[in-house]
Design a protein around this nucleic acid. Structure first.
Length: 565
RNA sequence: UGGGGGAUCGUCUAGCGGUAGGACGCCGGUCUUUGGAGCCGGCUACCUAGGUUCGAUUCCUAGUCCCCCAGCCA
């Protein structure tokens, strides 16, 4: 009992393992990731991707297909098809040539529909959408049979042919399964199998004007591809009897099995395509790759690595209960991953000028800095040190509170990789009283790493050399919502709950010169400021950095204790 | 008062009749030539009520609460 279990174990993997052990499907395991190309992939999709591709990879000979569920011509676009492939690949998965489109099955799907009509398992209904809704009944009342339900096979065949031939306007008829209008499961009350849509499909053009519905196309696509385990989210549980009905009545040789799991929800963000589309459409975010969005592209632009996403997905597990995962958990995996791979550099977000009065003018000393204390192989670099520096405004207090060990008049701190610095005086703006410059002295005997550098001071601060530092803009990304979306009561005007400070732009930041020419996507950790990623918009003279994980002020404890005094 | 699902620390998850485990988070300590890192310690959970059993988170019964379903979306 209570034996430690592998992190990649869940009820679905148990089912798959049991099926293999029982020799079902000839011991084969074939899964699929079936997005509709009507939007960009997000972290919720990443969960499904990791699950489907993961299960395939764990089972000898297992494969996972990528299939575009493109059965609705009005919402789909090749832009999404490309983006989806790109994102799946970026996440590190390979469909090994097994990429399919439901639209490639349209002819075969149509043939199945004709077969169903011949078996009197499907009929053409000519009720309007509103009438159909009335006939369907409610959750508590059974539905009634459509007056068209009794049409003859020949009439149905003829009508269905006319539908296909384009003789009927949108909405004139639909093809419905003949199941049971009194079923307590509403999905079984003669669901629509085909509808008329005079629209141009991004792949089949105007070849078709009738399109199969999800409930018809999906199970048959699975069957056609030999999918063994068709994993989908919980809201399709009620569709499983229909899924099985379609597969059974269509008499396909292969019987895939639908298994449902809970979709991923994250605090302080949205995962619904509809809402994301609204944010993008109303320009409340910059685009699908806005780093505040939980899209794969947004995460990527923020500097999140595929390894971090996969580690997160593996950790959250797969279960049937509804869950809302805390954003901090995702951030934990991002930090953990970045911590190992990000070189540390010094940066000053809110600069305060410092002049070292006893350091000669015009002299530049090269100090050696460690690139990554956790990875010796990352090596070292030279950082220029001179008479004029900038430090972080927060690293100086004119009247230091208790427990504040950084600079203040008369106090000493160590400059990271450099010398001990002593503050002599602070210059103030004559009117605002704002500190504009610090005059300091340094102790030449305290160079970092030198044997004489024994003296200890209470704090170490970071800095950049004024004449060497490069200009930067830093974008700080905060939670998208002020209130957790799960707690927002109504659906309308939900965008009012967006955090007005979800992005803060800091211009005039300074970073050390080693970052000059850092490519877009390069990840760094600014000493004490967090993890940042070079944005594609970056220019060599004024770099743009996106923060990957919201910052918790490391000194907050001190400041808090100050406030409460 | 229809049908389908689900309830374990604040959060996510393990458990399959035998001392309720892990992770995040939080709290405290420690280290310090960055820390938000590292290290050490602590925190809090089986929806309820019955029953079966030597023993129930696990099995049974009855409740309670939560989620999903009435698109010609997927």
């Amino acid at each position: 009992m209570n034996a430690p279990t592998s992190s990649s174990s869940d009820f679905i993997r148990d089912i798959v393992a049991a099926d293999r052990a029982a020799g079902r499907h000839g011991g084969r395991v074939v899964t699929r990731f079936p997005p509709e190309p009507n939007g960009y992939l997000h972290i919720g999709h990443a969960k499904a991707i990791c699950l489907n591709f993961g299960i395939a990879a764990e089972n000898p000979g297992g494969i996972c297909h990528l299939r575009f569920d493109d059965t609705n011509p009005t919402t789909e676009d090749p832009e999404y098809v490309h983006a989806i492939q790109d994102d799946v690949r970026w996440l590190g998965f390979d469909w090994q040539g097994n990429m399919f489109y439901a639209s490639d099955y349209f002819e075969r799907l149509h043939a199945f529909a004709v077969t169903l009509i011949r078996k009197e398992k499907a009929y053409v209904d000519s009720l309007t959408a509103e009438q159909m809704r009335e006939y369907r009944g409610t959750l508590t009342e059974p539905g009634r049979n459509s007056p068209f339900r009794a049409r003859s096979i020949d009439e149905n065949l003829d009508l269905f042919a006319r539908m296909r031939a384009g003789e009927c306007p949108d909405g004139a008829h639909v093809l419905r399964a003949k199941i049971d209008m009194a079923s307590p499961n509403i999905n079984l009350r003669d669901p629509v199998l085909y509808r008329i849509r005079h629209a141009t499909h991004y792949r089949t053009g105007t070849t078709w004007c009738i399109y199969p519905a999800y409930d018809f196309a999906h199970p048959l696509s699975d069957a056609l591809e030999g999918i063994t385990h068709s994993l989908c989210t919980l809201e399709f549980e009620d569709h499983r009897p229909l899924y099985d009905w379609v597969v059974a009545e269509s008499e396909v040789p292969h019987r895939p099995q639908q298994i449902e799991f809970a979709r991923l929800n994250l605090t302080f963000t949205v995962m619904s395509k509809r809402k994301m589309l609204e944010l993008v459409g109303k320009k409340l975010v910059a685009g699908w790759d806005d780093p505040r969005l939980p899209t794969i592209r947004g995460l990527r632009r923020r500097g999140v690595t595929p390894e971090a996403v996969r580690a997160f997905c593996e950790h959250i597990g797969v279960a049937k209960r509804d869950a809302i995962v805390e954003m901090q958990l995702l951030e934990h995996f991002i930090r953990e991953d970045l911590n190992k791979r990000s070189p540390r550099v010094m940066a000053v977000l809110k600069p305060l000028k410092v002049t070292i009065d006893n350091f000669p003018e015009g002299v530049v000393e090269e100090l050696e800095a460690v690139n990554n204390p956790e990875d010796p192989s990352a090596g070292t670099r030279k950082v220029p040190f001179s008479r004029n520096l900038y430090i972080e405004q927060d690293d100086f207090r004119e009247t230091p509170p208790a427990q504040y060990f950084r600079l203040s008049p008369g106090r000493e701190v160590r400059l990271r990789y450099g010398y001990i610095l002593k503050c002599v005086s602070a210059t103030k703006h004559p009117e605002s009283g704002e500190i504009t410059e610090l005059h300091c002295t340094y102790d030449p005997d305290t160079k970092s790493g030198s044997p004489q550098a024994q003296r200890k001071v209470k704090a170490t601060i970071h800095w950049v050399s004024a004449s060497h530092a490069i200009q930067a803009e830093v974008r700080l990304y905060n939670p998208l919502f002020v209130t957790d979306p799960a707690k927002i009561p109504t659906d309308d005007e939900w965008t009012r709950h967006l955090n007005p400070h979800s992005i803060e732009r800091l211009t005039g930041c300074l970073v050390e010169p080693s970052l000059s020419g850092a490519p877009a996507g390069a990840r760094v950790q600014f000493e004490r400021q967090g993890y940042f990623c070079v944005d594609p918009d970056s220019s060599p003279t004024a770099m743009v950095f996106n923060r990957t994980v919201p910052l918790k002020d490391p000194w907050a404890k001190i400041d808090k204790s100050q406030q409460s005094r």
